[in-house]
Design a protein around this nucleic acid. Structure first.
Lengths: 115, 115
DNA sequence: TTGCCATACCTTGAACTGATAGGTATAAAG
DNA sequence: CTTTATACCTATCAGTTCAAGGTATGGCAA
């Protein structure tokens, strides 16, 4: 697979994570809640989705991590790397193009020429 | 699985097909082209996607089919059934909610409180 | 008339995602 | 001291989509 249809809506979790990290460092558990809260619970990603995404993003160099102890608790904070910024704008524009295209069909003329 | 997160963006092909059929009868090959054309080639579904969707929709009673010979060519025209209308509004509202929720995150305040 | 392209239908196989369901460990609260 | 919330993690499963094929007919050009 390479340069075809990127499976449409794939990478939404990745998009959300990157976008949230643009606001500053966050840790996994926090991201899970932020996604749930900021979408009004419309989108609710489990930890089983978010953590693998984080690991993949770090492996690809899109984000970096550092461990910090906060109030006796150990957290892994993730920060956006330059590669992540590129990836974010890439996904954002893809998202716009696709949702725009679908929207275009949805609002198409209500009726068409009869067969 | 049933009543959780409907995989986010799943059912986009289904949504597009149902929406196009709302304009009147269409056949598979025509749908493939209509989707490609109406989205400006942003979304290009292969026949291997569209035909299975049509078969599933017919099986579930959302659409009906009739075979017609047009210019010596045999085509299977699909029409929206009442169940398909419901399904369409269901998918449409789901689509709006999800894209709206994602958009909400995307346009969130550009910067956040420092850690 | 032969070959090719567009039409028109279809299925199979592989690949990828994301969801579910677990599993560990600590701190706070009851 | 037991439960809940925090915080991390992985493995497996199910569901979609894609690519790649396969069949058949009609029209057109060589």
């Amino acid at each position: 697979m390479a340069a075809t249809n990127p499976s449409f809506m794939n990478g939404v979790p990745e998009l959300l994570v990157l976008r949230l990290l643009r606001n500053g460092e966050m840790y996994g558990y926090q991201l899970v809640q932020a996604i749930r809260d900021e979408t009004g619970e419309v989108v609710s990603l489990g930890e089983g989705v978010v953590y693998p995404v984080l690991h993949a993003l770090e492996k690809s160099g899109a984000i970096t991590s550092r461990r910090r102890a906060v109030g006796g608790r150990s957290r892994i904070y993730y920060a956006l790397a330059p590669a992540g910024v590129s990836r974010l704008s890439e996904l954002t524009s893809l998202w716009s193009r696709i949702t725009g295209a679908v929207q275009q069909v949805l609002v198409g003329e209500g009726d068409a020429e009869p067969v």
